[in-house]
Design a binder for these strands. Structure first.
Lengths: 348, 348
DNA sequence: CTGAAAGCGCTTACAG
DNA sequence: CTGAAAGCGCTTACAG
């Protein structure tokens, strides 16, 4: 957790500590050229270390409980289909407390990360919500230097606990999806896994296993196909599962996108959902509702996770207690039209 | 177009004009309670009129060509599936010029619009990109009072030209989709229209008509079904078209979401895409690629529209010339697997 | 390359 | 409810 930013990290405080005058620090801050390299570096270090933030003439800095003005919302990339869901939740909660949100993506190149950080610093937001699958440690330490509260929304991982993290119950979701299929009479249930290096993939897989084992069904490794959460990998996994000698009658895919890939693999084989094969996804992205047939899936409350992130940020800013560094919101099985009783099941 | 903001709308300038002291204006700005109602109102009006923006102690205001720091990106609602596409484009371009973006939604209630505006004002962004289907005139005049450059991204409408607007070639897109189907041998081609009050719906419909007429096919009003751009209306339109005595062999829907609704209507009737019926959409949202079968559609370059909006804003800020108040980017037909030769066509 | 001085825009007690 | 005064954080010439 970042040290509490000292109450008045002003230009003159920094100047005093660096043994220069205030104007010199000001010049460094404004990127003027005429400062000796050593001086500049010394000042820049202090600036970072002390978490300097421009304060205008508002007097004695941020007061406890002061209205928050701007929250940074940071994605790895904006091409994930769940980005909007989270944006909506965060925007909604921020709006409710009269705050704005600054959305940005850390573009791949390391060089640009640095520029991006400078941006965040210069717009002086009051807190940051990070949505990220891979929160590398370098970035994290850079963020600490911002001296603002940070909350991580982490729908896929299970990061370490130095920063409050908001996730969802992946294991329970995997279990409920599998149980749903078993209750429909399915016995051969395929699983399309997510990226193996992410904890959520493991949790969903274990939920699947637990469901089978509870029902006394043996886990057949042949029925577990690798995937990477995206459409294409779901499609390939679907092909693989239905090329088996004894193919499954139902498939649980660890993401909606992979479930849609499975749809396509089935369509190309002339198999129908749900008449021939049942399919369950994970996420409940809007497109799950608009697929044909509408997809039964495990809902991950991304918007609520966004809202909770903002509320947590708020508490952090007010130096209130956080219940727990890791919160997992409940997943929920949404039954639509892609699941039906197993064609091979004994009719009851 | 907003009047150019005067160079130095300072608190004391406002105070002088209002015949009060600077501290009083300051109190109004900071929402302190102890100001006489009439005084407050007089000051608030002047503040709006003169486009007051907090300037800290940066000396003489914004200099021409100064690095831009924050761009406001405003949606009506964040539930539109194309929101991310635009966000990505705007973020990308803004990132490229070391600027951040503040994303917000105007929530429905009028009361909250006012609060939202105050927020925009107080975060002092350097420009605003509006994405909106219904840019009501009240909101627009409020925005003028912000005295910052504004660009409207308008994928659906054709607003009046007091503000630079970026759209796409809806008519040409409608024409190319229809021509594609005709070239595949289809003669009875259904059309699912968009919300009739929006100009883009009209343009797409006219493109459809033009395509038919060019090929010497009579326009059958029965084949034109009403829709509202969303999934449900597409579904209903599909039901209606395929309940006709002489149903179409192909359908062009004025949005991807409606096309997916048509998919579902077809599935429920046991009809297959594209073997029995071809379907074309409009937008090329990511989900078009992930539908089953992947959807042939007219691509609207939403991300490029976002990028262009930022570049236009930049020129406005630098007081450079804008080529044209209304720019339309080209649409492009993306052929995937939802279209095939008409089953009733004479084989060539 | 750096600092002392002047100044800007704003806010905060304080007095009435 | 309002203003004169003091002060804060920062920046901009200017001088060396």
């Amino acid at each position: 957790m970042a040290e509490t930013p000292s109450r008045s990290v002003t230009i003159s405080a920094i100047a005093a500590e660096a043994g220069v005058s205030a104007p010199t620090v000001s010049r460094v801050l404004n990127g003027r050229g005429d400062v000796a390299p050593e001086t500049r570096e010394r000042i820049e270090n202090l600036l970072r270390l002390r978490g300097y933030r421009r304060r205008g003439s508002r007097g004695d800095g941020q007061r406890r409980g002061e209205r928050i003005g701007l929250i940074d919302l940071v994605f790895n990339d904006l091409d994930s289909p769940w980005a909007v869901e989270i944006i909506r939740g965060v925007e909604d909660a921020a709006h409710g407390m009269d705050s704005g949100i600054a959305v940005s993506a850390i573009h791949r190149q390391a060089s640009s990360t640095r520029k991006w950080l400078q941006n965040v610093r210069s717009r002086a937001s009051d807190g940051a919500v990070l949505v990220t699958t891979d929160l590398d440690s370098e970035l994290r330490s850079e963020l600490e230097e911002l001296h603002i509260p940070v909350v991580v929304i982490d729908p896929v991982g299970l990061s370490d606990l130095t920063v409050p993290t908001i996730g969802c119950t992946n294991w329970a979701g995997g279990l409920s999806a599998t149980t749903h299929l078993i209750e429909l009479g399915h016995r051969r249930i395929g699983f399309v896994a997510g990226r193996p290096e992410l904890w959520c993939s493991r949790a969903r897989l274990d939920g699947y296993r637990a469901g089978l084992e509870t029902a006394g069904i043996e886990v057949d490794p042949e029925l577990i196909a690798p995937g990477e959460f995206n459409y294409e990998s779901g499609f390939r996994a679907g092909e693989r599962l239905f090329d088996l000698d004894d193919p499954p009658t139902a498939v649980f895919a660890a993401s909606d996108q992979m479930a849609l890939g499975v749809y396509e693999a089935l369509r190309q084989r002339g198999l129908r959902v749900p008449d021939d094969v049942s399919v369950v996804g994970f996420d409940d992205l809007p497109q799950a509702r608009w697929s044909s047939p509408p997809l039964t899936t495990v809902r991950q409350p991304l918007d609520d996770m966004g809202r909770l992130a903002v509320r947590t940020l708020r508490r952090l800013m007010d130096s209130e207690e956080i219940e727990s560094p890791r919160v997992e919101l409940a997943t929920e099985l949404i039954v639509r039209d892609s699941t039906a009783p197993s064609p091979t099941a004994t009719k009851k």
